[in-house]
Design a protein around this nucleic acid. Structure first.
Lengths: 136, 136
DNA sequence: TTTATATAATTTGCATGCTAATTATATGCA
DNA sequence: TGCATATAATTAGCATGCAAATTATATAAA
């Protein structure tokens, strides 16, 4: 029994490796792994507030602020203060991002598919079930 | 099909949640998740070089430098230049860390056990097998 | 209406984690 | 020996990610 056998360690390691793998596939868009996921979240449902994006993505609000900062800086999303509640924001895709919408979905499906393809349908179900049991 | 169903996203999320969970358990020692793993690596085999620790932990050398910096700052490990090759270092436990050796092993086993307990032996085997298939 | 409390987003501070560049030392080859 | 190349560790720069504090606005209660 060594620390490498610890499930916590293993998950972190695999997660990091996959992140690197991901990067190569979206390198052309100059997006990071996390940025890509937030962009997918906006793409799936435009006009969400940063706090809702944080909830959907299971990351901290402060982290979302930074992610949106950089997505906005690079021209992928826009912040709009068009909510009755003047504290809140809504996040929309930029026109540039809209142009690439279909490509993003395709890349997403390709990446997930490349992992899914390694398993039988039954194994995939089993993996989802077992991962679910790991949630704290 | 939404981005939350992507296995890459799921692994990252679970991994982050577990990291937080971990923190509470080692909070008394003021160690982070990653510091704890590096400390376990040193504990398992003293005198390893930073580059070997990086290899064992599947993290970058530059990251190891920072981790050792903080572990040394907080008095858990020591850097020794007692290798024929004067470029290299060896990392040893401090006497303070040695005093807590048994506790660290116990905490480690307790944490890993708390996850393992959620599965049957067969499920655990299956999880290891399925995670292995995810490696890029 | 005024005050206390709550909420949305941001900022600050710190610890990963990676890549690329740098420094110091070894080694191999002419 | 002298020079090119390789290697160990570090540094610098950037992007997560979290906790705690801050700012601006809403809402509830006195």
């Amino acid at each position: 029994m060594t620390f490498q056998d610890c499930i916590c360690f293993q998950l972190g390691t695999i997660s990091r490796k996959i992140t690197l793998d991901y990067r190569n596939k979206i390198a052309g868009y100059n997006l990071t792994h996390s940025q890509f996921f937030v962009l997918m979240a906006v793409l799936e449902c435009e006009g969400l507030q940063p706090s809702h994006l944080a909830e959907k993505s299971y990351i901290d609000r402060a982290t979302v602020t930074g992610l949106i900062d950089r997505l906005e800086r690079d021209g992928w999303v826009e912040r709009h203060r068009d909510v009755p509640d003047r504290r809140a924001l809504k996040i929309y895709l930029s026109s540039k991002a809209k142009k690439h919408k279909k490509e993003f979905v395709a890349i997403f499906n390709e990446i997930n598919g490349s992992f899914k393809d390694r398993f039988t349908g039954e194994e995939w179900e089993q993996l989802q079930y077992l991962l679910g049991k790991l949630e704290p």
